[in-house]
Design a protein around this nucleic acid. Structure first.
Lengths: 149, 149
DNA sequence: TATTGTTATACTCTATAACTATA
DNA sequence: TATAGTTATAGAGTATAACAATA
């Protein structure tokens, strides 16, 4: 009855709960990232933000936040820290002086090219418990779940 | 070029990255949970911990932490808060006086029966963008990804 | 009035390291 | 020596509300 090892634990209905499985999958992925990429330039969140700015130069801070589900107040702090590290430049557009347009610095582009290799190599590795077809299925289902593509 | 709305944003290879999709899916699920369950007794993390204790009475604190990927130091604080609220009882077993065995209080069982209904109803709802078959596929793939069942 | 971004504050989750007690 | 749990501390992420500037 009283479980003495993780394998003995009975999760009951929880084991079929999508929210629970998503949380666990995300936690495990994040934990593995920090184990295997201790000396990486960027954390996953930073990489993602920089990546999207890189591929959408001049993107507005609010749009970036909406897309990546980052709240405005947190976005401010995040962008400030990237700016302080010389990775991102901010520009106030003439047509709407409330907004902020974000661009990658040239130094950041160089760093991102290196980080890209490492990051997507990791993405390949974490799919390992699944076959190539299964990874593709999982991708399709998650994108549909999220209303992307 | 410069994206003015989230729909315009180009995610490039990121859109096919498992870690990224998992993070977004988890974030969205969590955000929806708090929108729709503002008056719930328990947060998802608390519900999960209480659920596992409920279904594995006398489970050791360390085993629970391993299963749910909660670090020991955080586990201590979490269990303390549950104990302070009269939901969980701690017991030092005679055969290993370093360990702590966790059990649900009777009051907590009653609360959990109510919470169970709400929680799993939410779990049903979040699967909505997908068909029943797709939800089942997603469950299977995530469990395999996690090395469960 | 509504929107964009900022500031201030607080709470949760997580990470680390040093510690106690038990094995 | 190793393990289970605790304590203390720090950092990241997130939420809220109040605010300024602009639309």
């Amino acid at each position: 009855m009283a479980a003495r090892s993780p394998a003995d634990v009975d999760l009951g209905r929880l084991e079929g709960a999508l929210g629970f499985l998503l949380r666990l999958a995300q936690l495990r992925t994040q934990a593995r990232f920090f184990e295997e990429n201790a000396e990486a330039d960027f954390k996953p969140g930073e990489f993602t933000v920089l990546w999207v700015i890189w591929h959408n130069p001049g993107i507005r801070q609010s749009v970036l936040g909406q897309k990546l589900m980052i709240k405005r107040a947190h976005m401010t702090k995040l962008v400030r820290s990237l700016e302080d590290r010389g990775l991102v430049t901010r520009r106030i557009p003439e047509d709407d002086r409330r907004a902020v347009e974000l661009t990658l610095s040239t130094g950041a582009e160089t760093q991102m090219k290196r980080a890209e290799t490492r990051f997507f190599a990791f993405e390949e590795r974490i799919g390992a418990p699944l076959s190539k077809t299964e990874v593709e299925q999982l991708n399709v289902l998650l994108r549909k779940f999220l209303g992307l593509g």
